[in-house]
Write a protein that binds this DNA or RNA. Structure first.
Lengths: 342, 342
DNA sequence: ATGAAAGCGCTAACAG
DNA sequence: CTGTTAGCGCTTTCAT
């Protein structure tokens, strides 16, 4: 790897001039610039990013904390994050915590502020204290897609109106004529998917419908989780005509369960999800769901992170920014229909 | 962010001693070590990774080049890569090329050797010349899951026996009694999935079966691609009793197409894929496929990369290592069955 | 318009 | 066992 010194030597200038050429700082003669450029090309010189980071007192990367990139939701999110991060020349380091707070802490301690200039956190099961520490140590942290900002660690956050998402899905089912609607609620950690469920409940109440406790099941936020829950639910309550799930994956699992039990989806039972992951439109029947602005959230989160980085040193005691995405939107597909007349 | 100097100052020692404590180099008195440790704790000191990288002449990250992390295959792969990379203290930077060679080049030029110590390449549609340049500039590059090492850029490679994979899937269908088998072959770039298809053809020939040119369709390596291809294929050749796809995603698409055309899978038509992505076992009917050792390949690739990094300066004119994974394995699920008697 | 010099935070000899 | 000294490659005033 050629260094800036070698380039300078070859071009007969000092490293400072080479640096100026590189940063396009203008204050360089056309002829000199050409000589430098030639040397760069001849040597195949590329600036050493770690060195540059050190000299500039910044870091060229952002850390993206997720529980597992293999969870189908995150790849789409990560892609959008990377795209936006590139705008400011940042690279994205992907940090899988595997749901283990200790692993999350290890990541934060190692790279926050030393290799990554900022940290983006989605549902990675991290200790709030670790996040607060990171922030206190001077590295901006932004939460994204957090269910309830008000219950969080009090950090800057990009919020999605998940309550509205729940409400939209429920209203759709109600409008179709469903009166007995089961709910599969993500159970991971405490409170996850609470707002979605609350939106669901609110919509039912407004329509004068009861939420039967027996029709609400908590389940892991996975296909299998939804499958098991739906199986149990449909087995116990054959009068249900619809199932509301707080996430797409369990909803998809519920569709499988219904099929296995001999129910036709959507004619015997309607099923809805929330998020609109790729798979939602690609499975059969395609899933009626409430699309959450994933890419927009990612973009806003990175932009916010960037602002915080630029605002260094951050104004003390400022209340953390909460930034809202545009509203979630109902997407009607093949998994919902009016209930059978019976 | 506290620096090593501040720690040293507080502990009444020099930075060198602090460094020794950090690296557990032993040559430090118990009492001094304690004082240093206390200072570290008091200050919340964390070593600056960029600085360390610069001083050590190495980089703390590995670059993972993929075309798009949103392609369902990569997340599983990336997860395994990260897991293995952590073993040597490396972080993983995810580089989505979006199928654009120019974008791939930009990534390589920027981070190879300056922020990343090594580059892991899967199917990211990169110019071979760019890879060769990267390698020539001194940054180890390892190819992984490459279809045909012999046709590649002549770089170290972790190879999967994809021909065998094709053969296994085909043999399975033949053993079930299928005689007229269609093929959906990934068409992205030239030659992708060639070995898989060749394995398929070989198995058919050995069984004395013809490959009817009309029964072979090229399709994009996606669900929709497989859907369209299968629809066309089943529409034109109703005598087909099975479809062999060179990848899981198109196979899954084919299942949907068959269903939409009123065919029962597997009773009217059997369908097989290759890879065994998560979705293969989670969709209905679950996909009969040939599992490729994804995690193992990732692990081997990172290990190989590590070796090459350690072997710096690499022995010139050494022929690039080719490292083989264990064999792919047939996984029979619900999408394949004997053909109807008729 | 270009050069000289200092320093970012850390590590790695080598001395003592 | 601990301190001294020199960088790693780059940027950035401040001179000239």
């Amino acid at each position: 790897m050629a260094t800036i010194n070698e380039v300078a030597l070859m071009a007969g200038v000092t490293p400072a001039t080479v640096s100026n050429v590189l940063r396009k700082r203008g204050r360089v003669g056309a002829l000199t610039r050409q000589r430098v450029q030639d040397a760069i090309d001849a040597l195949g010189y590329r600036p050493h990013l770690a060195a540059r980071a050190l000299a500039e007192g910044r870091a060229p990367t952002l850390a993206l904390m997720v529980s597992s990139i293999a969870n189908p939701f995150y790849p789409e999110f990560a892609l959008a994050v990377e795209r936006e991060a590139r705008e400011s020349g940042h690279f994205v380091i992907i940090c899988n915590t595997n749901e283990d707070p200790a692993m999350g802490r290890a990541y934060l301690e190692q790279i926050a502020g030393t290799l990554s200039e900022g940290v983006l956190v989605t549902n990675a099961n991290l200790d709030f204290a670790d996040l607060a520490d990171t922030e206190a140590r001077g590295t901006p942290v932004v939460l994204c897609m957090w269910e309830r900002p008000e219950d969080g660690p009090g950090l800057p956050c990009v919020a999605v109106d998940f309550a509205l998402a729940g409400r939209l899905a429920a209203s759709h089912l109600i409008a179709l004529g469903h009166r007995r609607i089961g709910a599969i609620v993500g159970s991971k950690a405490s409170g996850i998917h609470r707002p979605r469920y609350e939106g669901f409940v609110a919509a039912l109440h407004e329509a004068g419908l009861e939420v039967n406790a027996g029709d609400v099941l908590h389940a892991p936020d996975t296909l299998q989780g939804g499958y098991a829950a739906a199986r149990a639910m449909l087995g116990a309550n054959p009068h249900l005509t619809a199932i509301f799930a707080t996430n797409d994956l369990p909803a998809l699992g519920a569709i499988h369960a219904a099929a296995d039990l001999g129910f036709n989806v959507p004619n015997d039972v309607s099923i809805t999800g929330i998020t609109d992951i790729q798979l939602a439109r690609e499975s059969r029947p395609a899933l009626t769901t409430v699309a959450v602005p994933t890419a927009e959230a990612a973009q806003l989160a990175v932009a916010l992170l960037r602002e915080l980085i630029a605002a260094d040193p951050r104004p003390a005691d400022a209340t953390p920014t909460i930034c809202k995405t545009s509203a979630p939107q109902l997407i009607v597909r093949g998994s919902s229909a009016p209930p059978r007349l019976s």
